[in-house]
Design a protein around this nucleic acid. Structure first.
Lengths: 214, 214
DNA sequence: ACACTTTTGTTGTAATTACAACGGATTGTT
DNA sequence: AACAATCCGTTGTAATTACAACAAAAGTGT
């Protein structure tokens, strides 16, 4: 039923015998209702999940015990993969944000299997995620909110290759990404617009400053 | 001459025929004098470097063209690996912080080689780095400096498993890690100490708050 | 011991930002 | 259309933080 989606997964790119590969990976599907816990912090299962349909929240408990959503996973995306391959217990929990279908795979199977393609794909995915995480760290490391915002917008513009570009989330999501308060972000964006540094409408932005810098 | 160091590298853990592996990886050594550029932003070489001796700075240009040191690499550590495996051009440059010897390896060789152990090791290293980067992002995402500091100190304490623990860097390094101003950090640490929340001397810290939270 | 460099703590000020509260806009549902 | 729910911008205030400047402290090499 999910063959189509699975065949499209970057993890299986270039793999001929997907059915055989899935067997070697001990693949198992599972359904989760909205709000149900998919993965629990503390587990050390050696498995990684692929979201074939639905959506999921990656949640971490802060020091006070309150849940903090660190990421939101969509269709075709993986979760728990870093912990599985690093052989570390999860420090986060995963909850279904809506009714979801998850494909469970064995990390060990990806390493040990005959399909060299699988581990090559996994390696490339990890590498890309590493680059992505490093870039986010760079934005978050700026000392002022304005610099965080501009640093982020520049990187999206570079990625898009266009003057006008859309962000993948709304204000709250953007604030979470940049580690700041939503209303403070809104206020700053308005200020930058008044100053003529940026222009925007909803999630569509335009950077007025030139390519080199301010 | 560097056989000892190479044999200790996590990348080669469990590899029997290291010499053979090095040949398959097109391994080449190179020396760099202090201040010399090892890797240039924009390059797309498909190679990764391992620092066999010395030290190196990973430097990124900010929007104004000024260099920002994003990381410091020590002996036995790799650099450029994420870009090599992601098949992306470097967005950072690498400079020798002191006279250094670098072992160059082909990323392609790790994927294609007979030694399955190598790609398994690489995968585990990437996964660990992923976990590390994600945790740093979590600290950086806190909204106040005090929370950043405490979140970071808690994670170091958990890692150390002791009440009293040492940080791997000085004040400036800590400030860079947390994305804040050094003097603001010094002032805040003093304030937290007066408040009885933490105690410290130089890089040795103690968290007074209990395990659960404030 | 000496000069020198580097690191760190302190202070003051201006600017920024978190936070809470509120109202308008948008969306989806019945 | 009415309704609820969610998202977003604005405002005000208190608290935080960046930044610059300076002095103390610690390390470095001669």
């Amino acid at each position: 039923m999910y063959e189509r989606v699975i065949a499209q997964l970057p993890l299986f790119a270039g793999v001929e015998d997907i059915k055989g590969a899935l067997e070697n990976l001990g693949a198992r599907g599972a359904d989760y209702a909205k709000g149900v816990q998919i993965f629990a912090a503390g587990e050390k299962s050696g498995r990684l999940g692929v979201l074939l349909s639905g959506g999921a929240d990656i949640v971490k408990e802060d020091a006070a015990g309150d849940p903090v959503t660190v990421a939101r996973i969509g269709e075709g995306e993986m979760f728990g993969e870093a912990f599985a391959f690093a052989e570390l217990p999860l420090t986060v929990s995963v909850y279904a944000a809506c009714p979801s279908h998850v494909l469970w795979l064995s990390a060990e199977g990806i390493l040990a299997g005959k399909e060299a393609r699988l581990s090559a794909n996994a390696l490339r995915l990890f590498a890309r995620k590493n680059v992505y995480l490093t870039e986010r760290i760079y934005h978050l490391s700026r000392h002022t909110l304005a610099e965080k915002v501009l640093s982020y917008l520049r990187s999206v513009r570079r990625e898009a290759g266009r003057e006008i570009f859309a962000l993948p989330f709304g204000r709250q999501g953007m604030a979470d990404f940049l580690g700041c308060d939503r209303s403070a972000l809104s206020a700053l964006l308005a200020k930058l617009k008044r100053a003529g540094v940026i222009d925007y409408h909803k999630n569509v932005f335009r950077l007025i400053e030139n390519e080199q810098g301010p």
